[in-house]
Amino acid sequence: MKRSVWVLIGIGLAVSLFVAGVVSFYASSSPDGLEKVAEDKGFIDTASAPINGNLPTADYGIAGVESERLSVGLAGVLGVVVMAVLAFGLFWFLGRGKKPSEAADAASDARA
């Protein structure tokens, strides 16, 4: 029996929640490639503050949550949920009403 697409989706969503909600706290806080180059070579000060920088969710945190671990974790979970709604919605819309080709189905059934 082939593993259902939805099992794979479930595993993938669980991994994404874990990565964004838990592992994110342990991410390196060093500047990333572009930021580092801009700092080292001297054009970092051409950046202006983001106009939506005062959002309660700015910079992957939740305003008012004291614990940094909890703050970034909740922001990560929120991001995963928002992403899931938007992305599954968009791609469902794009793929709607189109059955997988019989050949492709047969191929995957036979391999199982």
Partner: peptide, 25 residues
């Protein structure tokens, strides 16, 4: 995309979002 591959594309977007939070040295 079709009805089978569309949810996968959704998952890939979610996964990329999560992974982009992880800065590695």
């Amino acid at each position: 995309l079709d009805e089978k591959t569309a949810p996968l594309a959704g998952l890939v977007a979610v996964f990329v979002f999560a992974m982009q939070m992880i800065n590695f040295p």
